[in-house]
Amino acid sequence: MLSEIITSLNQARRERRAAMVISDLNGTRQEILLEGETVIRSDIAREVADRFGSGKSGLVKIGDRELFFNVHMPAPRLVIIGAVHISQALALISRLAGFDTVVIDPRTAFAAPERFPGATIHAEWPEEVLLKTPLDIYTAMAVLAHDPKIDDFPLIEALYNKCFYVGALGSRKTHAKRVGRLRGAGVAAEDITRIHAPIGLDIAAANPAEIAVAVMAEVIDALRKRSRDVV
């Protein structure tokens, strides 16, 4: 493999673009394709499209040649709204699990970099951050600020952009009020049912770090049980 293929794959990863390396195992021919690029060779165009769709890598025999299609899908991303105590643990676990991790909270005292060593943290309103870096289907959102002024907008954006997971902190009572506000804002009932609330798998989590584990487990569950594999 040429070193420049590795450089290109890493760049695609940073830009959150899907990429594919096609290797002819009988020879040395190898090429890299980015999703959306035109496939010149008609004999593999269908295969390339299917594999970008499924995210699955695999070996294919075409004539007497063995071609290996290695699909590199964008890393899943977790956007955490609210730089609260749970978020501190969640940001760490999320990065450990290989997720690109972003924390957003307009309250500068909460969104202090020293509370989130090594994390990408925005001390801005979600409205501003999400305008610059929109959500996508490879993104999960955990809404934890516990303040409708901060939480509601990104929650609606996450549903609208079909994030693969949307979870919101709060008791059933809090969530019932939230559902009322979202309905008032015109969000469809079937979209609202996609919100995981109360957030996190039921493991009887008793403190912020344990709740973070429960949330991360629920995010991974949503990622891996999707019909379409992301990574």
Binding site: I6, A75, R95, L96, T133
Partner: peptide, 16 residues
């Protein structure tokens, strides 16, 4: 926006 994962992947390590 993108944070390097805590554990670098094999291709990122390869580039380094």
């Amino acid at each position: 926006m993108i944070v390097s994962p805590v554990v670098a992947g094999p291709l990122e390590t390869a580039e380094t």
